[in-house]
């Protein structure tokens, strides 16, 4: 039984793989997609507990993904992955309903901790 179903959206392969390698061994069911569009499609077909999304992406950005997810599935938690320069945007994301944000580069421990909190938060509601 998985601890939670997580979808990671980022245009960078290394970030996707890093997340998968950090979270999967800890018992999470991790799916990875390379664009916002693909992510939303997967969200339509499968149920997820948590969305991890990068802010800057080629087709639709993280803020848009957040807005759609929170619009369609309000109980699904969203965590923003950000570069340092977009802290302001991350703050804006928090206001739009994101659970938390995590700055690149992050350690496995950091991402685990944030994810754990988010899942716990979802479970409590």
């Amino acid at each position: 039984m998985s601890k939670g179903r997580i979808i990671v959206i980022d245009d960078e392969d290394i970030v996707l793989i890093s997340c998968q390698r950090a979270l999967a061994p800890e018992g999470y069911d991790v799916r990875i997609v390379k664009s916002g569009m693909d992510g939303l499609k997967m969200l339509e077909s499968e149920a997820f507990d948590l969305v991890l999304t990068d802010l800057k992406m080629p087709d639709i950005d993280g803020i848009e993904v957040l807005r759609i997810v929170k619009g369609k599935w309000p109980s699904v938690e969203v965590i923003i992955i950000t570069g340092y320069q977009t802290v302001e945007t991350a703050v804006k994301a928090m206001k739009l309903g994101a659970f938390d944000y995590i700055e690149k580069p992050f350690t496995p421990e950091q991402i685990l901790s944030v994810v754990k909190n988010a899942i716990a938060h979802r479970a409590s509601e």
């Binding site: 980022d10 960078e12 290394i14 970030v15 793989i17 890093s18 997340c19 390698r21 950090a22 800057k56 570069g83 340092y84 320069q85 690149k104 580069p105 992050f106 350690t107 496995p108 421990e109 991402i111």
Partner: peptide, 21 residues
């Protein structure tokens, strides 16, 4: 710097994550 920072943060994430693993 902004461009470089954005590009480098992702590979750094990989290095740090896999380093820890």
């Amino acid at each position: 710097a902004a461009g470089v920072a954005h590009e480098i943060n992702s590979p750094l994430t990989g290095i740090v994550t896999f380093g820890h693993l």
